[in-house]
Design a binder for these strands. Sequence first.
DNA 1: CTTGTGCTTTACACTGCGTCAAGCACCATA
DNA 2: TATGGTGCTTGACGCAGTGTAAAGCACAAG
Lengths: 199, 199
Amino acid sequence: MSIDAGSYGDPETRSRILAVTWDLVADRGSSLKLSEVAARAGVSRQAVYLHFGDRNGLLLALVHHMDETLDLGESLAHVHAASTGRDLLERAMRLNTEFWTAVQPVAQVLEAAQHDDEALGAAWRDRMKLRQGVFAAMIQQLADHDQLSAQWTLEDASALLYAVAHFDTWRELTHQLHWTDDHYVEAMTRLLCRSLLTS
Amino acid sequence: MSIDAGSYGDPETRSRILAVTWDLVADRGSSLKLSEVAARAGVSRQAVYLHFGDRNGLLLALVHHMDETLDLGESLAHVHAASTGRDLLERAMRLNTEFWTAVQPVAQVLEAAQHDDEALGAAWRDRMKLRQGVFAAMIQQLADHDQLSAQWTLEDASALLYAVAHFDTWRELTHQLHWTDDHYVEAMTRLLCRSLLTS
DNA sequence: CTTGTGCTTTACACTGCGTCAAGCACCATA
DNA sequence: TATGGTGCTTGACGCAGTGTAAAGCACAAG
Protein backbone atom coordinates (compact mmCIF):
# COMPACT_ATOMS: atom_id res chain seq x y z
CA MET A 1 0.00 0.00 0.00
CA SER A 2 2.54 2.54 1.26
CA ILE A 3 -0.27 5.09 1.50
CA ASP A 4 0.00 4.69 5.24
CA ALA A 5 2.39 7.54 5.90
CA GLY A 6 0.95 7.86 9.40
CA SER A 7 3.03 6.27 12.08
CA TYR A 8 2.08 3.03 13.80
CA GLY A 9 3.37 1.48 16.96
CA ASP A 10 6.26 2.37 19.16
CA PRO A 11 8.32 5.25 17.69
CA GLU A 12 11.41 3.73 19.24
CA THR A 13 10.88 0.48 17.34
CA ARG A 14 10.11 2.45 14.22
CA SER A 15 13.30 4.46 14.28
CA ARG A 16 15.33 1.37 15.18
CA ILE A 17 14.03 -0.32 12.05
CA LEU A 18 14.85 2.79 10.02
CA ALA A 19 18.37 2.98 11.40
CA VAL A 20 18.96 -0.66 10.53
CA THR A 21 17.52 -0.09 7.06
CA TRP A 22 19.89 2.81 6.52
CA ASP A 23 22.85 0.61 7.49
CA LEU A 24 21.73 -2.24 5.30
CA VAL A 25 21.07 -0.08 2.27
CA ALA A 26 24.57 1.27 2.71
CA ASP A 27 26.25 -2.08 2.26
CA ARG A 28 23.69 -4.27 0.47
CA GLY A 29 22.37 -1.61 -1.87
CA SER A 30 19.12 -2.33 -3.64
CA SER A 31 19.23 -6.03 -2.80
CA LEU A 32 17.97 -5.17 0.65
CA LYS A 33 15.77 -7.92 2.13
CA LEU A 34 12.99 -7.10 4.54
CA SER A 35 13.67 -10.30 6.44
CA GLU A 36 17.20 -9.11 7.05
CA VAL A 37 16.01 -5.71 8.19
CA ALA A 38 13.63 -7.35 10.64
CA ALA A 39 16.26 -9.75 11.97
CA ARG A 40 18.81 -6.99 12.56
CA ALA A 41 16.23 -4.75 14.19
CA GLY A 42 15.22 -7.60 16.47
CA VAL A 43 11.62 -7.64 15.34
CA SER A 44 9.53 -9.99 13.25
CA ARG A 45 9.26 -9.50 9.52
CA GLN A 46 5.59 -8.61 9.95
CA ALA A 47 6.40 -5.78 12.30
CA VAL A 48 8.13 -4.07 9.40
CA TYR A 49 4.96 -4.37 7.34
CA LEU A 50 2.84 -3.07 10.21
CA HIS A 51 5.05 0.00 10.51
CA PHE A 52 5.71 0.81 6.87
CA GLY A 53 3.21 -1.02 4.71
CA ASP A 54 5.69 -2.38 2.19
CA ARG A 55 9.20 -2.19 0.85
CA ASN A 56 8.77 1.17 -0.86
CA GLY A 57 6.97 2.52 2.19
CA LEU A 58 10.04 1.66 4.21
CA LEU A 59 12.33 3.44 1.79
CA LEU A 60 9.98 6.43 1.70
CA ALA A 61 10.02 6.61 5.48
CA LEU A 62 13.80 6.36 5.34
CA VAL A 63 13.95 9.51 3.24
CA HIS A 64 11.99 11.45 5.86
CA HIS A 65 14.02 9.87 8.62
CA MET A 66 17.24 11.04 6.99
CA ASP A 67 15.87 14.56 6.81
CA GLU A 68 15.25 14.60 10.54
CA THR A 69 18.45 12.83 11.48
CA LEU A 70 20.74 14.98 9.38
CA ASP A 71 19.17 18.33 10.31
CA LEU A 72 21.25 20.50 8.03
CA GLY A 73 20.07 23.84 9.40
CA GLU A 74 23.05 24.62 11.58
CA SER A 75 25.56 23.40 9.01
CA LEU A 76 23.99 25.61 6.36
CA ALA A 77 24.08 28.61 8.65
CA HIS A 78 27.81 28.07 9.01
CA VAL A 79 28.21 27.94 5.22
CA HIS A 80 26.31 31.18 4.73
CA ALA A 81 28.34 32.87 7.45
CA ALA A 82 31.37 32.77 5.17
CA SER A 83 32.91 36.18 4.50
CA THR A 84 34.45 35.69 1.07
CA GLY A 85 33.17 33.96 -2.02
CA ARG A 86 35.97 31.46 -1.90
CA ASP A 87 35.21 30.69 1.71
CA LEU A 88 31.54 30.20 0.91
CA LEU A 89 32.27 27.70 -1.82
CA GLU A 90 34.82 25.87 0.26
CA ARG A 91 32.43 25.51 3.18
CA ALA A 92 29.73 24.36 0.79
CA MET A 93 31.99 21.68 -0.66
CA ARG A 94 33.02 20.61 2.82
CA LEU A 95 29.41 20.17 3.82
CA ASN A 96 28.75 18.48 0.50
CA THR A 97 31.26 15.73 1.12
CA GLU A 98 29.84 15.11 4.58
CA PHE A 99 26.34 15.04 3.18
CA TRP A 100 27.09 12.53 0.45
CA THR A 101 29.10 10.34 2.77
CA ALA A 102 25.92 9.81 4.76
CA VAL A 103 23.37 9.86 1.98
CA GLN A 104 24.97 8.48 -1.16
CA PRO A 105 24.16 4.77 -0.73
CA VAL A 106 20.51 5.59 -0.16
CA ALA A 107 20.55 8.08 -3.01
CA GLN A 108 21.69 5.45 -5.44
CA VAL A 109 18.99 3.00 -4.41
CA LEU A 110 16.33 5.67 -4.59
CA GLU A 111 17.32 6.88 -8.02
CA ALA A 112 17.14 3.31 -9.25
CA ALA A 113 13.75 2.82 -7.59
CA GLN A 114 12.19 5.83 -9.32
CA HIS A 115 11.14 3.57 -12.18
CA ASP A 116 9.07 1.33 -9.91
CA ASP A 117 7.43 3.67 -7.47
CA GLU A 118 6.21 7.12 -8.30
CA ALA A 119 5.84 8.21 -4.66
CA LEU A 120 9.42 7.27 -3.96
CA GLY A 121 10.70 9.12 -6.98
CA ALA A 122 8.66 12.18 -6.06
CA ALA A 123 9.96 12.15 -2.48
CA TRP A 124 13.52 12.00 -3.69
CA ARG A 125 13.06 14.72 -6.28
CA ASP A 126 11.55 16.89 -3.53
CA ARG A 127 14.73 16.56 -1.49
CA MET A 128 16.79 17.45 -4.52
CA LYS A 129 14.63 20.52 -5.12
CA LEU A 130 15.50 21.65 -1.61
CA ARG A 131 19.14 21.11 -2.48
CA GLN A 132 18.77 23.24 -5.57
CA GLY A 133 17.29 25.96 -3.41
CA VAL A 134 20.25 25.83 -1.08
CA PHE A 135 22.72 26.26 -3.90
CA ALA A 136 20.60 28.99 -5.48
CA ALA A 137 20.77 30.90 -2.18
CA MET A 138 24.53 30.62 -2.21
CA ILE A 139 24.75 31.99 -5.73
CA GLN A 140 22.43 34.82 -4.71
CA GLN A 141 24.73 35.59 -1.80
CA LEU A 142 27.69 35.71 -4.16
CA ALA A 143 25.80 38.02 -6.50
CA ASP A 144 24.77 40.29 -3.63
CA HIS A 145 28.43 40.80 -2.79
CA ASP A 146 29.40 41.32 -6.44
CA GLN A 147 31.50 38.21 -6.45
CA LEU A 148 29.65 36.31 -9.15
CA SER A 149 31.26 36.59 -12.54
CA ALA A 150 29.16 38.58 -15.00
CA GLN A 151 29.46 35.68 -17.44
CA TRP A 152 26.77 33.78 -15.60
CA THR A 153 23.08 34.26 -15.02
CA LEU A 154 21.89 33.41 -11.53
CA GLU A 155 19.93 30.46 -12.90
CA ASP A 156 22.77 28.93 -14.86
CA ALA A 157 25.28 29.41 -12.07
CA SER A 158 23.11 27.80 -9.41
CA ALA A 159 22.04 24.95 -11.67
CA LEU A 160 25.64 24.21 -12.56
CA LEU A 161 26.78 24.41 -8.97
CA TYR A 162 23.99 22.07 -7.93
CA ALA A 163 24.70 19.58 -10.69
CA VAL A 164 28.46 19.58 -10.34
CA ALA A 165 28.13 19.05 -6.60
CA HIS A 166 25.84 16.07 -7.15
CA PHE A 167 26.83 12.70 -5.81
CA ASP A 168 28.29 11.01 -8.88
CA THR A 169 31.07 13.55 -9.15
CA TRP A 170 31.81 13.16 -5.46
CA ARG A 171 31.64 9.36 -5.58
CA GLU A 172 33.85 8.98 -8.63
CA LEU A 173 36.53 11.22 -7.14
CA THR A 174 36.53 9.90 -3.60
CA HIS A 175 35.63 6.24 -4.15
CA GLN A 176 36.83 5.33 -7.64
CA LEU A 177 39.85 7.62 -7.84
CA HIS A 178 40.51 7.43 -4.10
CA TRP A 179 40.73 11.12 -3.44
CA THR A 180 40.57 12.17 0.19
CA ASP A 181 37.71 14.37 1.32
CA ASP A 182 40.19 17.23 1.68
CA HIS A 183 41.44 16.76 -1.85
CA TYR A 184 37.85 16.80 -3.12
CA VAL A 185 37.05 19.97 -1.22
CA GLU A 186 40.19 21.72 -2.35
CA ALA A 187 39.94 20.78 -6.03
CA MET A 188 36.23 21.46 -6.32
CA THR A 189 36.61 24.78 -4.56
CA ARG A 190 39.34 25.81 -6.96
CA LEU A 191 37.31 24.68 -9.96
CA LEU A 192 34.26 26.60 -8.79
CA CYS A 193 36.15 29.74 -7.79
CA ARG A 194 37.85 30.02 -11.15
CA SER A 195 34.64 29.50 -13.07
CA LEU A 196 32.03 31.28 -10.97
CA LEU A 197 33.75 34.16 -9.18
CA THR A 198 34.97 37.48 -10.44
CA SER A 199 38.70 37.43 -11.09
CA MET B 1 26.50 -18.98 -13.68
CA SER B 2 27.35 -16.05 -15.96
CA ILE B 3 30.83 -17.60 -16.41
CA ASP B 4 29.70 -18.50 -19.89
CA ALA B 5 31.04 -15.44 -21.65
CA GLY B 6 31.44 -17.53 -24.80
CA SER B 7 28.71 -17.07 -27.33
CA TYR B 8 26.03 -19.63 -27.97
CA GLY B 9 23.59 -19.98 -30.78
CA ASP B 10 22.77 -17.65 -33.60
CA PRO B 11 24.60 -14.30 -33.29
CA GLU B 12 21.63 -12.62 -34.91
CA THR B 13 19.30 -13.89 -32.18
CA ARG B 14 21.86 -12.96 -29.59
CA SER B 15 22.17 -9.36 -30.69
CA ARG B 16 18.42 -9.06 -31.12
CA ILE B 17 17.99 -10.06 -27.48
CA LEU B 18 20.65 -7.55 -26.47
CA ALA B 19 19.02 -4.75 -28.44
CA VAL B 20 15.69 -5.47 -26.79
CA THR B 21 17.37 -5.59 -23.38
CA TRP B 22 18.92 -2.19 -24.00
CA ASP B 23 15.52 -0.75 -24.88
CA LEU B 24 13.84 -2.31 -21.87
CA VAL B 25 16.51 -1.20 -19.43
CA ALA B 26 16.03 2.29 -20.80
CA ASP B 27 12.40 2.52 -19.79
CA ARG B 28 11.93 -0.13 -17.11
CA GLY B 29 15.22 0.40 -15.31
CA SER B 30 16.33 -2.29 -12.90
CA SER B 31 12.90 -3.91 -12.77
CA LEU B 32 13.68 -5.58 -16.07
CA LYS B 33 12.01 -8.99 -16.42
CA LEU B 34 13.62 -11.73 -18.43
CA SER B 35 10.22 -12.94 -19.58
CA GLU B 36 9.57 -9.51 -21.06
CA VAL B 37 12.94 -9.47 -22.78
CA ALA B 38 12.19 -12.87 -24.29
CA ALA B 39 8.70 -11.90 -25.41
CA ARG B 40 9.88 -8.70 -27.10
CA ALA B 41 12.77 -10.47 -28.77
CA GLY B 42 10.38 -13.11 -30.06
CA VAL B 43 12.13 -15.99 -28.34
CA SER B 44 11.32 -18.21 -25.40
CA ARG B 45 12.45 -17.25 -21.94
CA GLN B 46 14.80 -20.22 -21.94
CA ALA B 47 16.58 -19.01 -25.06
CA VAL B 48 17.75 -16.04 -23.01
CA TYR B 49 19.23 -18.40 -20.42
CA LEU B 50 20.87 -20.49 -23.13
CA HIS B 51 22.53 -17.40 -24.55
CA PHE B 52 23.52 -15.53 -21.43
CA GLY B 53 23.39 -17.90 -18.47
CA ASP B 54 21.46 -15.62 -16.16
CA ARG B 55 20.26 -12.10 -15.53
CA ASN B 56 23.66 -10.67 -14.69
CA GLY B 57 25.18 -12.51 -17.63
CA LEU B 58 22.73 -10.69 -19.86
CA LEU B 59 23.63 -7.32 -18.39
CA LEU B 60 27.33 -8.15 -18.67
CA ALA B 61 26.88 -9.03 -22.34
CA LEU B 62 24.97 -5.78 -22.78
CA VAL B 63 27.99 -3.80 -21.61
CA HIS B 64 30.17 -5.42 -24.27
CA HIS B 65 27.42 -5.01 -26.84
CA MET B 66 27.24 -1.29 -26.12
CA ASP B 67 30.99 -1.00 -26.63
CA GLU B 68 30.70 -2.54 -30.08
CA THR B 69 27.55 -0.70 -31.06
CA LEU B 70 28.71 2.75 -30.01
CA ASP B 71 32.21 2.52 -31.48
CA LEU B 72 33.50 5.84 -30.24
CA GLY B 73 36.75 5.80 -32.23
CA GLU B 74 35.71 8.19 -34.96
CA SER B 75 33.90 10.55 -32.62
CA LEU B 76 36.96 10.77 -30.41
CA ALA B 77 39.20 11.48 -33.38
CA HIS B 78 36.95 14.42 -34.18
CA VAL B 79 37.26 15.69 -30.61
CA HIS B 80 41.04 15.49 -30.67
CA ALA B 81 41.16 17.24 -34.03
CA ALA B 82 40.05 20.46 -32.34
CA SER B 83 42.41 23.36 -32.86
CA THR B 84 41.85 25.40 -29.70
CA GLY B 85 41.43 24.38 -26.09
CA ARG B 86 37.94 25.76 -26.00
CA ASP B 87 37.04 23.86 -29.13
CA LEU B 88 38.41 20.66 -27.64
CA LEU B 89 36.33 20.99 -24.52
CA GLU B 90 33.22 21.93 -26.43
CA ARG B 91 33.53 18.94 -28.73
CA ALA B 92 34.13 16.72 -25.71
CA MET B 93 30.99 17.99 -24.00
CA ARG B 94 29.03 17.56 -27.22
CA LEU B 95 30.14 13.94 -27.47
CA ASN B 96 29.50 13.55 -23.77
CA THR B 97 25.85 14.46 -24.04
CA GLU B 98 25.40 12.06 -26.96
CA PHE B 99 27.16 9.33 -25.04
CA TRP B 100 25.07 9.67 -21.91
CA THR B 101 21.86 9.92 -23.88
CA ALA B 102 22.52 6.42 -25.13
CA VAL B 103 24.18 4.93 -22.09
CA GLN B 104 22.73 6.58 -18.98
CA PRO B 105 19.80 4.22 -18.30
CA VAL B 106 22.09 1.24 -18.48
CA ALA B 107 24.71 3.03 -16.41
CA GLN B 108 22.25 3.58 -13.60
CA VAL B 109 21.18 -0.05 -13.51
CA LEU B 110 24.77 -1.25 -13.58
CA GLU B 111 25.91 1.01 -10.79
CA ALA B 112 23.06 -0.30 -8.68
CA ALA B 113 23.91 -3.91 -9.59
CA GLN B 114 27.53 -3.59 -8.46
CA HIS B 115 26.49 -4.68 -4.99
CA ASP B 116 25.11 -8.00 -6.23
CA ASP B 117 27.52 -9.11 -8.87
CA GLU B 118 31.25 -8.55 -8.77
CA ALA B 119 31.79 -9.37 -12.45
CA LEU B 120 29.22 -6.78 -13.46
CA GLY B 121 30.75 -4.14 -11.28
CA ALA B 122 34.21 -4.91 -12.61
CA ALA B 123 33.02 -4.72 -16.21
CA TRP B 124 31.45 -1.35 -15.62
CA ARG B 125 34.46 0.04 -13.78
CA ASP B 126 36.61 -1.11 -16.70
CA ARG B 127 34.54 1.00 -19.06
CA MET B 128 34.85 3.98 -16.76
CA LYS B 129 38.63 3.48 -16.64
CA LEU B 130 38.65 3.79 -20.41
CA ARG B 131 36.65 7.00 -20.05
CA GLN B 132 39.18 8.35 -17.59
CA GLY B 133 41.90 7.58 -20.12
CA VAL B 134 40.06 9.51 -22.78
CA PHE B 135 39.76 12.60 -20.62
CA ALA B 136 43.36 12.27 -19.48
CA ALA B 137 44.42 12.32 -23.12
CA MET B 138 42.47 15.53 -23.64
CA ILE B 139 44.14 17.19 -20.67
CA GLN B 140 47.51 16.03 -22.01
CA GLN B 141 46.67 17.59 -25.35
CA LEU B 142 45.80 20.87 -23.62
CA ALA B 143 49.06 20.75 -21.68
CA ASP B 144 51.05 20.03 -24.84
CA HIS B 145 49.69 23.21 -26.38
CA ASP B 146 50.30 25.23 -23.20
CA GLN B 147 46.61 25.82 -22.71
CA LEU B 148 46.24 24.11 -19.35
CA SER B 149 46.31 26.51 -16.45
CA ALA B 150 49.41 26.11 -14.31
CA GLN B 151 47.13 25.84 -11.28
CA TRP B 152 46.38 22.23 -12.08
CA THR B 153 48.39 19.06 -12.17
CA LEU B 154 47.62 16.76 -15.08
CA GLU B 155 46.16 14.20 -12.70
CA ASP B 156 43.85 16.58 -10.89
CA ALA B 157 42.66 18.23 -14.06
CA SER B 158 41.82 14.99 -15.84
CA ALA B 159 40.18 13.48 -12.77
CA LEU B 160 38.02 16.56 -12.32
CA LEU B 161 37.10 16.71 -15.98
CA TYR B 162 36.17 13.04 -15.90
CA ALA B 163 34.11 13.37 -12.74
CA VAL B 164 32.32 16.56 -13.68
CA ALA B 165 31.43 15.08 -17.05
CA HIS B 166 29.94 12.01 -15.38
CA PHE B 167 26.33 11.14 -15.93
CA ASP B 168 24.68 12.54 -12.83
CA THR B 169 25.67 16.08 -13.66
CA TRP B 170 24.40 15.61 -17.19
CA ARG B 171 21.18 13.95 -16.08
CA GLU B 172 20.32 16.51 -13.42
CA LEU B 173 20.82 19.38 -15.85
CA THR B 174 19.11 17.91 -18.88
CA HIS B 175 16.39 15.78 -17.27
CA GLN B 176 15.61 17.36 -13.91
CA LEU B 177 16.25 20.99 -14.80
CA HIS B 178 15.20 20.51 -18.42
CA TRP B 179 18.23 22.04 -20.04
CA THR B 180 18.62 21.38 -23.73
CA ASP B 181 21.68 19.50 -24.92
CA ASP B 182 22.99 22.73 -26.40
CA HIS B 183 22.58 24.53 -23.12
CA TYR B 184 24.46 21.76 -21.34
CA VAL B 185 27.29 21.86 -23.86
CA GLU B 186 27.56 25.62 -23.74
CA ALA B 187 27.46 25.99 -19.96
CA MET B 188 29.78 23.08 -19.23
CA THR B 189 32.23 24.31 -21.84
CA ARG B 190 32.28 27.74 -20.27
CA LEU B 191 32.72 26.29 -16.80
CA LEU B 192 35.58 24.10 -17.91
CA CYS B 193 37.29 26.77 -19.99
CA ARG B 194 37.32 29.24 -17.14
CA SER B 195 38.65 26.73 -14.64
CA LEU B 196 41.05 24.60 -16.68
CA LEU B 197 42.49 26.82 -19.42
CA THR B 198 45.04 29.59 -19.27
CA SER B 199 43.43 32.97 -19.21
C1' DC C 1 18.89 -41.04 -42.54
C1' DT C 2 21.72 -39.86 -38.96
C1' DT C 3 23.78 -36.25 -36.28
C1' DG C 4 24.26 -31.71 -34.32
C1' DT C 5 22.58 -27.05 -33.66
C1' DG C 6 19.24 -23.69 -32.17
C1' DC C 7 15.44 -23.22 -30.13
C1' DT C 8 10.67 -24.49 -27.76
C1' DT C 9 7.70 -26.43 -24.30
C1' DT C 10 6.53 -27.95 -19.92
C1' DA C 11 7.48 -28.62 -15.47
C1' DC C 12 9.43 -27.70 -11.07
C1' DA C 13 12.23 -25.91 -6.98
C1' DC C 14 13.47 -21.73 -4.66
C1' DT C 15 13.45 -17.04 -2.97
C1' DG C 16 11.47 -12.79 -1.55
C1' DC C 17 7.24 -9.98 -1.28
C1' DG C 18 2.88 -9.08 0.56
C1' DT C 19 -1.37 -10.66 3.18
C1' DC C 20 -4.14 -12.92 6.63
C1' DA C 21 -5.70 -14.63 10.99
C1' DA C 22 -4.88 -16.07 15.49
C1' DG C 23 -2.72 -15.20 19.66
C1' DC C 24 0.23 -13.36 23.35
C1' DA C 25 2.23 -9.80 26.65
C1' DC C 26 1.59 -5.72 28.64
C1' DC C 27 -0.35 -1.99 29.73
C1' DA C 28 -4.40 1.04 31.09
C1' DT C 29 -8.94 1.79 33.21
C1' DA C 30 -13.33 0.63 35.26
C1' DT D 1 -10.00 -8.42 39.07
C1' DA D 2 -12.04 -8.37 34.73
C1' DT D 3 -11.93 -5.58 30.12
C1' DG D 4 -10.20 -3.72 26.31
C1' DG D 5 -6.63 -1.75 23.50
C1' DT D 6 -1.86 -1.50 21.78
C1' DG D 7 2.36 -3.56 19.91
C1' DC D 8 4.08 -7.16 18.42
C1' DT D 9 4.73 -12.50 17.22
C1' DT D 10 3.76 -16.83 14.90
C1' DG D 11 2.61 -19.61 11.19
C1' DA D 12 0.47 -20.13 7.12
C1' DC D 13 -0.54 -18.94 2.39
C1' DG D 14 -0.65 -17.01 -2.64
C1' DC D 15 2.06 -14.80 -5.97
C1' DA D 16 5.82 -13.31 -9.13
C1' DG D 17 10.28 -13.77 -10.94
C1' DT D 18 14.57 -16.44 -11.20
C1' DG D 19 17.05 -20.33 -12.44
C1' DT D 20 17.23 -25.52 -13.73
C1' DA D 21 16.07 -29.74 -16.01
C1' DA D 22 14.44 -32.81 -19.58
C1' DA D 23 12.13 -33.92 -23.61
C1' DG D 24 11.15 -32.66 -28.19
C1' DC D 25 10.98 -30.32 -32.70
C1' DA D 26 12.76 -28.05 -37.11
C1' DC D 27 16.28 -27.77 -40.04
C1' DA D 28 20.64 -28.13 -42.19
C1' DA D 29 25.00 -30.81 -43.33
C1' DG D 30 27.33 -34.93 -43.78
